[in-house]
Design a protein around this nucleic acid. Structure first.
Ligand SMILES: [Mn+2]
Ligand SMILES: [Mn+2]
Ligand SMILES: [Mn+2]
Ligand SMILES: [Mn+2]
Lengths: 217, 217
DNA sequence: TCATAAAATTAGTCTTGACTAATTATTTTA
DNA sequence: TAAAATAATTAGTCAAGACTAATTTTATGA
């Protein structure tokens, strides 16, 4: 389809666009890709010319209809490959993201759909992110976090926001995965730390930042 | 591991080295990759510096021990992915080569071995080429062709030398695949055309070039 | 053996996608 | 609102990996 770089930019812009009321600036894109803002300005020019994005000083960067379609396809491929790597090749959930980051760029007209079918049309990837459908429809992602829970309430872990291996490995250590049940025991008002019970076991304390990265059902 | 280009050069040199007594020249590499000889000379310099190849005017290009090891790994990945695409995703054998050409560059320490295991440690790829083992050992490829057959003898199709989709589609039309039995009925001395019987059915005539691209058991 | 053809190499250019440093525009804040 | 800070943009550079055109080297054969 496009170059590897173009695709990574599209995907990055798409991801930033998921945050409601967030203005997508060159700096924001630069940060999300680990690039220099000057390089981003170059690429914004290129993608604008190709009519994949529109850039307005006031509104920031927006994907065009075509750009959105392309970005969603890349995300679809990424998440399907993640399912494959975890379920078929036995990788752990903290290893799959980086490999999928490469696999998502393999371009073949029917590959995503064949993979989708082979995997049994999964709805969510191993991190709980919804997998865009073949028709381009994207199921609504989870948005309520552990910090939104009220005292005493319990929930099911539906997805993780941060997919870095340091976070995922921490979760593994705590025995938390997609589907794990968590009950909020107490909120420490000093720093918003959360005292939780994981799968009904003894209490553990986690930070606010931790809580914000756990999406629940 | 290396850049996409470096890997493609390594693989191309490896493939050329399979032909016995063949001097691997810049022109030969250029032809096999569809590149300009001048570009090849640049890359020969680069790969020599990285100690992956040795270039001697007299002997031509040779892979070093390290270069050979790396090339074999890329071939291993290529052929394993081809098996995956055919057996798991249902592609036809004339579609898989180009996709594997991209997939072979996905670099992850354990990916090839996991894929190998998932596929049940296949010995040959869908074109009959041997799949290098995890330890770097490469099973001996088939080398006898249809043109080596004597009048009246019959054989089993073991592999194809040419993997272009035009050749593979022609084979499909003739109902020839890996494992098909072929009997040589007659050799036309004028142009070395071969009159053959495919799976015991009525006679068909194929060219010498055709015969040279069918490897038999 | 020497002329010609073919192959290899060099020199110089181009595109992509990065970068740094300098400059200009826009926001914040005092 | 003016100064200071931050963000965006421009200008210039670089490396990779390709190309063409020109030159040199090597091989071939009359
Ligand atoms: Mn990527
Ligand atoms: Mn994911
Ligand atoms: Mn390749
Ligand atoms: Mn093959």
């Amino acid at each position: 389809m496009y170059t590897l770089s173009e695709e990574n930019y599209l995907k990055s812009i798409y991801r930033l666009a998921q945050q409601p009321n967030f203005k997508i600036t060159p700096t924001a894109i630069a940060e999300s890709l680990g690039n220099n803002p000057a390089s981003v300005v170059d690429m914004i020019r290129k993608l604008t010319e190709k009519q994949l994005i529109a850039y307005d000083k006031k509104k920031g960067v927006e994907l065009t209809q075509q750009g959105l379609k392309d970005a969603v396809l890349i995300v679809r491929r990424h998440r399907l490959w993640e399912v494959f790597l975890l379920e078929k090749l036995g990788y752990h959930w903290d290893e799959i993201h980086d490999i999928a980051e490469e696999l998502e760029h393999i371009s073949n007209a029917t590959l995503a759909d064949r993979l989708d079918k082979f995997l049994g049309f999964p709805e969510y990837d191993p991190h709980g992110d919804p997998i865009p459908k073949a028709n381009g429809k994207v199921p609504k992602p989870f948005s309520v976090t552990l910090t939104d829970l009220k005292m005493g309430e319990s929930c099911r872990v539906a997805a993780v926001r941060d997919t870095s291996s340091s976070f995922l490995q921490y979760l593994q250590k705590l025995d938390i995965g997609i589907g794990t049940r968590i009950q909020l025991i107490e909120k420490i008002s000093f720093d918003n730390s959360l005292v939780i019970s994981i799968s009904g076991k003894e209490n553990t304390t986690v930070s606010q930042k931790f809580g914000e990265n756990i999406l629940i059902d």
